[in-house]
Every structure is written in structure tokens, then in C-alpha cells.
Write a protein that binds this DNA or RNA. Structure first.
Length: 241
RNA sequence: GGCGUGCCUUGGCCU
């Protein structure tokens, strides 16, 4: 039974829903973990209808079952239905909280996300990272900064989010100041450079963006670096016309 | 023992 479940998960990750379903159907007996794995297969495929059918058929439902279904709703924009399930859980674990918070962030409901974040008993590093990126996406510099100051300093993701927060509120100088303060090992991280290139490009500072791409070690320049710069030029041309 | 969240940086898909 465990082997079958592993096969279901593997094919889900590989993207082969039909094969996952084949193994599921072949199982002589199925426990909740097997059902949960199949539910997850539909969720990954964003097949909400099948996911809901499967969800309704699962008994007894575990915390994983409920959380997977929260995710199914959240990632398809049905945040209120996600919340309904979340509210039925008496003691959500960190994963359940994180999925719910991320759902609100993705939906642009940053206030709801913040409320949950404040109510969450033990926010983990993951939660803070989610929330920081949520604040950053909305350009809420002060909120982002408060979290950034609490986060692990060697983590490039937190720095990128903070640079993005400045960029989205037009505070390019502060973004660059922060970028220049980053730890040395971030200089080998493409996303760190890309975040600053994006900050310049977004605010129309294309010369600086180009200069930064040039200063970036060629070995770590990637498609995103170039796309970022090119899209900056494209949007300027559109404004000119 | 096998199942659920990774986040950040450009674009695309979906809304």
C-alpha cells in the first residue's frame, strides 16, 4: 500500500495525473494517506471539481485532507471557501496557517493575511517570508521593513522582497542602498541582481538597469535578467507612443 | 514508514 502511494505521489510530481489515478484504482485497499495523495494529484492539476469530489468521498478526513483542500480553493481564487474549511480546524498547524495566509496574499487581501499572521501562534520562518513578500507586492514598505529586520540576514529572498517593496513604492534610492548593503555571498545569487535590475526597470531607470546587468557576473546572468531589462525598454517605448 | 505550504526576482498561462 505504501509503495502504491509513493507511486501516486511520484507521478503527481511528474505531472502524470492519469498514471497516478491508475495506481490509485489498482490499490486493493486504500487508507487516508492514499486518498490524500490522490486528492493532491487533482489539486496539482488545478482540477477543482474532481478535487472536491474526492474530498467529499474521503472519510475520515485528516488535517492533511483539509489543508490540501484549502490549498485547492486558495489557488483557484476561491479564498472564502478556503477560509470556511480553515475555520473548521480546531488546531491548525503551521502548514495550514501558511497556506491560508498565502491564499490571502495571492488574492491581494493583505489585511486579512495580516490579521491571520497576527493570530498565528508560532509563525515560522516560512510564514514571515510569505508575509514579507505579501507586503512587498503591495509596496507596503513599513510593514515589510518590520519583518525584514526580524528575518535571517543571510537569506537573499528576504532581501529581494525588501528591494521589491521599495521598488513598488518608487523608492529606488533606498532599494539601491539596501542592495549595496547585501552580504557578499548574495553576489553569486542571480535573483539578488535581478531584483535590483527589476527595481530600476520598473521605475524607468533603464540606464542604471543596463549598467547593473553589465556589472553582473556573466556566469549567473539568466533569462530573467535579460527579460527584465528588455521589458523595461518595451514599456518605455509604449509610453513614448 | 508513504500524503499537504516555500518563499523572492522578468514574462507567459488563468482571473
Amino acid at each position: 500500500m505504501i509503495s502504491f502511494t509513493i507511486l501516486i505521489s511520484c507521478h503527481t510530481q511528474y505531472g502524470d495525473l492519469d498514471l497516478a489515478r491508475d495506481f490509485f484504482d489498482q490499490m486493493p485497499e486504500k487508507d487516508t494517506v492514499a486518498w490524500n495523495s490522490m486528492l493532491q494529484a487533482y489539486v496539482r492539476h488545478r482540477d477543482l471539481v474532481s478535487a472536491k469530489e474526492m474530498f467529499d468521498a474521503i472519510a475520515p478526513k485528516t488535517l492533511v485532507t483539509l489543508t490540501t483542500m484549502i490549498r485547492a480553493y486558495a489557488q483557484t481564487g476561491h479564498i472564502d471557501q478556503a477560509r470556511e474549511i480553515f475555520d473548521t480546524i480546531h488546531h491548525p498547524d503551521a502548514i495550514a496557517w501558511n497556506i491560508m495566509i498565502q491564499g490571502y496574499c495571492d488574492a491581494g487581501s493583505i489585511d486579512q493575511a495580516r490579521i491571520l499572521f497576527q493570530r498565528m501562534p508560532d509563525p515560522d520562518a516560512f510564514t514571515c517570508s510569505l508575509m514579507l513578500s505579501g507586503f512587498a507586492a503591495m509596496g507596503l514598505v513599513d510593514d515589510a521593513k518590520a519583518l525584514f529586520d526580524r528575518s535571517r540576514q543571510e537569506d537573499p529572498v528576504a532581501w529581494n522582497s525588501m528591494i521589491t517593496a521599495y521598488a513598488h513604492s518608487g523608492r529606488v534610492e533606498e532599494a539601491k542602498f539596501l542592495f549595496d548593503q547585501r552580504p557578499d555571498h548574495h553576489k553569486h545569487v542571480a535573483s539578488s541582481w535581478n531584483a535590483m535590475i527589476a527595481a530600476y526597470a520598473e521605475n524607468g531607470h533603464l540606464v542604471e538597469a543596463a549598467g547593473l546587468l553589465e556589472a553582473m557576473p556573466p556566469a549567473i546572468q539568466n533569462e530573467i535578467s535579460w527579460n527584465t531589462l528588455l521589458c523595461g525598454f518595451v514599456s518605455r517605448d509604449m509610453l513614448d507612443q
